[in-house]
């Protein structure tokens, strides 16, 4: 994994395995977003409560925001897939707009995986299995992207 800044853009170098992994995760994330019958705990992480002590206000907030959030999160997922597809075997070029789509999607991906791994508190440990490694890998990618754009 290599992440570099080139003028205003970010260049991401991933090997073929990493590219396929990320494209697959982006597709799965998009499926999760549209899966109304899916895991409630995952759903609550992607669309958390906005009013802690007022269920009616929370319902109303959800009614007004839910579809738009799904749409924009889904667009971010699509942006990851598109960036990877456009790069072919080469390095992935992200303009600031693309980085703005990648970062929230990587965050959501980590939220979904965290729920699958049972990571809910600061002192919960990440299991040393394949999904745990994917979780760490996504964190590394996200950290490097943030460092590159904030430099």
């Amino acid at each position: 994994m290599r992440v570099q800044r080139r003028r205003g853009d970010i260049v991401v170098g991933l090997d073929a395995v990493e590219r396929d992994l990320l494209a697959s995760l982006a597709t799965q994330y998009d499926e999760v977003l549209h899966d109304d019958e899916g895991d409630d705990a995952v759903h609550d992480r992607l669309f958390p409560v906005a009013y802690r002590d007022d269920p009616d206000a929370d319902d109303e907030f959800r009614r007004y925001t839910y579809e738009g959030l799904v749409e924009r999160k889904s667009a971010n997922a699509g942006r990851i897939a598109a960036s990877i597809a456009a790069a072919g075997d080469g390095r992935i070029l992200l303009d600031p707009d693309a980085v703005g789509a990648w970062l929230p999607a990587l965050t959501d991906l980590r939220l979904v995986i965290a729920e699958r791994l049972g990571i809910r508190h600061d002192d919960d440990t990440v299991p040393d299995d394949q999904l745990g490694q994917v979780y760490h890998w996504l964190a590394e990618l996200q950290a490097r992207l943030v460092d590159a754009v904030d430099r």
């Binding site: 395995v17 990493e18 396929d20 992994l21 697959s24 995760l25 799965q28 994330y29 499926e31 999760v32 899966d35 899916g38 895991d39 409630d40 705990a41 995952v42 609550d44 992480r45 958390p48 409560v49 802690r52 002590d53 991906l109 979904v112 995986i113 729920e115 699958r116 791994l117 049972g118 809910r120 508190h121 394949q130 999904l131 490694q133 994917v134 760490h136 890998w137 590394e140």
Partner: peptide
């Protein structure tokens, strides 16, 4: 990180059975 096995459908099919409540701060 070794991310060799890509075919697994990690996110859509839960690998950890059961669901749990999301963390809520003190009400």
């Amino acid at each position: 990180v070794d991310v060799a096995q890509l075919v697994e459908h990690w996110l859509v099919v839960p690998v950890v059975a059961g669901s749990s409540p999301v963390i809520h701060p003190t009400m």
